[in-house]
Write a protein that binds this DNA or RNA. Structure first.
Lengths: 159, 159
DNA sequence: TATTGTTATACTCTATAACTATA
DNA sequence: TATAGTTATAGAGTATAACAATA
């Protein structure tokens, strides 16, 4: 009985220390599933505030004034699309266009106070993502952050 | 000089062992950025094969026959949308509709051989995601997999 | 001549509502 | 009556091509 418990404990320890390494396909599938779930969580939170996911994504970029062209780059879409997206946000009072003092061709987009407050709430209401992160303790979150930081340079390289 | 090097080494070691824990906001932002990047990587790979991201996502669900209604659930969209998406995939010969022998209301969607091959290539061509994962060694990938597995239940719970 | 933002166009995705054929 | 799939409709995102204003 005593040895049985010891063996069980040993097995658990070894399983925790040296779990089966996942195949690349398994890891890829898991990353894809979580990426999709996280995106849908964001879209659902945006929808509760009457925003499409792209509108919310644009709003999330506006830490300062950004030219229309820059928004197209950030959203990875054609510049012609940005006109309509900003039109709809502007008609709701969430952003405004400002002329650029140094280049009269450029219009800078700025979030209004209401726009900033709205995107703040959207972020706060990503319930699935928040509750998922709550499943980890501080040490695990630190480890996850470190690993994701290692992943970032590869993900942001554009083909 | 000797002590200087020792101190540097000690500092590096301690930094590696006990890095600053990230705030929840930082971790959230990093997860969101990687989720978006991964999604855009998938969309770009799909586009190279003439597929929209939703079409590719649907194709990726077809490990076996799936009713139209089930696809709407998997894609988190209204059932009426699935008709058009499947129409376009079917006209390109990537999927086909089959009658369900047990319920004549149901149509099951099945990927054709060409459909399976196409989605296989899309997955293989997610270059940003692949190169990001290549930045980790096996031990790190195992650790990442374990942490993401812990995240999954929270992400998949629907609000 | 090149760039910024816009418009016009055509296609796809999206939800809502109504319809049909089954169950 | 309830459900599966479809159709019709309207709004939004998307790329392409062309345009005016500015650099």
């Amino acid at each position: 009985m005593f040895y049985g418990l010891k063996l069980l404990e040993y097995t658990r320890t070894m399983t925790a220390i040296t779990p089966q390494p996942p195949t690349k396909a398994q890891l890829l599938e898991l990353v894809a599933a979580l990426g999709t779930a996280q995106w849908q969580d964001f879209a659902a939170a945006a929808a509760r505030h009457g925003l499409t996911s792209v509108q919310a994504k644009l709003l999330a970029q506006l830490k300062g004034p950004v030219p229309m062209r820059g928004l197209a780059t950030l959203l990875v879409c054609d510049a012609s699309n940005v006109t309509g997206i900003v039109d709809r946000l502007e008609s709701r009072g969430l952003v405004r266009r400002e002329p650029d003092p140094r280049d009269r061709r450029v219009k800078n987009v700025v979030a209004t106070d209401e726009g900033l407050e709205t995107i703040r709430r959207v972020r706060a209401e990503m319930q699935a993502t928040h509750s998922a992160l709550d499943a980890l303790d501080e040490e695990e979150r630190t480890a996850l952050y470190g690993l994701l930081e290692r992943l970032r340079p590869g993900m942001e390289r554009r083909a």
